[in-house]
């Protein structure tokens, strides 16, 4: 697969993930550049990669963590994001997500938005699958309870 094809196909999921985690558009752009530069320079490793999307998201995640650590920054609270106004329950959903730890929000995003498996998320976050499953269970229960409340 050529770099241009990879870029065209995976820019959106990587951008979307970084935008979900960080509100700063400049920081998102910087991490995107570093991520795709790493992809460009490691194209020869592609034949050993099981899932291209997971591989690229893993690179992006680690670049983001490095950036936050280096500049002593934190993930921006979800209420700083600008989202579509038409979602009436949107603010409440963000409030529920804010109560989760950053790893759990990544897991929820990965499962529901990117359709990643627990195994893929474990590789991406460099944690055991059991931890992903237990964090996912707790977070999903919390989110479903919220859903029951807003639907009442």
């Amino acid at each position: 697969m050529r770099f241009e094809e990879i870029y065209a196909k995976y820019l959106e999921p990587v951008y979307s993930y970084l935008k979900f985690k960080l509100a700063d558009e400049y920081l998102v752009e910087e991490i995107l550049q570093e991520t795709f530069l790493a992809v460009y320079r490691n194209l020869d490793q592609l034949e050993n990669v099981k899932s291209l999307k997971t591989w690229i998201l893993t690179i992006a995640h680690h670049k983001m963590v490095d950036h936050l650590r280096m500049h002593k920054l934190e993930e921006v609270p979800l209420d700083h994001h600008e989202l579509a106004d038409e979602m009436v329950t949107d603010l409440t959903l963000r409030e529920v997500l804010k109560q989760l730890d950053p790893t759990a929000t990544t897991i929820i995003y990965g499962l529901y938005v990117e359709q990643l498996s627990c195994q893929e998320l474990a590789e991406m976050l460099d944690i055991p699958v059991g931890t992903v499953k237990s964090k996912a269970y707790t977070a999903r229960t919390k989110l479903r309870n919220w859903l029951k409340e807003v639907k009442l």
Partner: peptide
Amino acid sequence: ELAKQLSQFRSSPPPSIKTNVY
């Protein structure tokens, strides 16, 4: 319903970012 709600967090990069990053 949860998947539908969470899908609102998906966003597309503006054209300027697409060009700049490439």
